[in-house]
Design a protein around this nucleic acid. Structure first.
Length: 259
DNA sequence: ATGGTAGCGCTGCTA
């Protein structure tokens, strides 16, 4: 089973690229972030025509997450349920069971600037994600959390740690929050395959960052042990960041052996 | 050189 995640930075603007990529990469499951669509504007029929069932949790202008699946979508849910959401009103989490794996598509808050209210609530959101996992799943179940975490887990996950200094995405509290997610019982599927630096998933549109390969690895696939044991390989599709009207993120793909 | 670009939706916000 091939699972993937892609922050598309507006599904309306990116739909032709997404259709093209689905036919090329043929994922069984694709998690999307930043669809920037209301639910009624989500192009479910377009994906259906390509063989994908879908579930979308959107709000309109900002955020918005979705799951596309060729292997079924069961027990879909959105948000933190009864738990408090530090970004209440934002559409940042959708979950469903696809092909026997609990799939969670997340768009973690950006945090803007360190020590702002947005940064504090980013840390709270990540902490609440762990609480939500603890209350809705167990680490011995097959589960994968895919999405834009807006955190680079290690120094080697950014093009220059000096350039970042103490700015968001690389601070110790953000990294600790992701570590605590993993301590619940997940591993970084991409890092299970590669130790190398310079393997990024996001490049700012500005300053020619993509061309200069000034990027960050902030789109992650975290999997519980039953899924980790099935990981065959992973890749960032940098070609999807090239050409006409690309997203600023590239898709991350993980192939799983039959479970 | 705290710049630069893209998307949304109409002026400035978000990333």
């Amino acid at each position: 089973m091939r699972i993937a995640t892609w922050n598309v930075n507006s599904l309306k603007a990116r739909l032709p690229r997404v259709e093209e990529w689905l036919e090329y990469a043929k994922p069984d499951v694709l998690c999307l972030q930043e669809t920037k669509l209301a639910d009624k504007a989500f192009p479910a029929m377009t994906f259906s025509a390509l063989g994908y069932d879908s579930v979308h949790h959107g709000q309109g202008q900002w955020n918005g997450v979705a799951i596309l699946s060729k292997v079924g979508i069961e027990d879909a849910s959105s948000g933190f349920g009864d738990l408090t959401d530090p970004y209440e009103g934002d559409a940042r989490l959708v979950a469903a069971t696809c092909g026997g794996v609990r799939i969670v598509s997340v768009y973690v808050p950006n945090g803007r600037e360190v020590d702002t209210d947005h940064y504090v609530r980013k840390l709270e959101w990540l902490a609440q994600l762990r609480v939500w996992l603890e209350t809705t799943a167990t680490p011995d179940q097959p589960l994968a959390v895919l999405g834009d975490f807006n955190v680079a887990p290690e120094d080697k996950d950014v093009w220059s740690i000096k350039a970042f200094g103490d700015s968001t995405h690389v601070t110790a509290p953000e990294r600790d929050a992701v570590t605590r997610l993993c301590e619940w019982g997940m591993v970084d599927a991409f890092r299970a395959c590669y130790d190398d630096d310079r393997l990024y998933t996001y490049w700012d549109y500005r300053r020619g960052d993509f061309h200069q390969h000034r990027g960050m690895r902030i789109d992650l696939v975290l999997v519980t042990r039953p899924v980790a044991d099935r990981v065959q390989w992973a890749v960032v599709d940098r070609n999807a960041r090239k050409g006409q009207q690309p997203s600023d993120h590239a898709p991350v793909v993980v192939d799983l052996a039959d479970g």
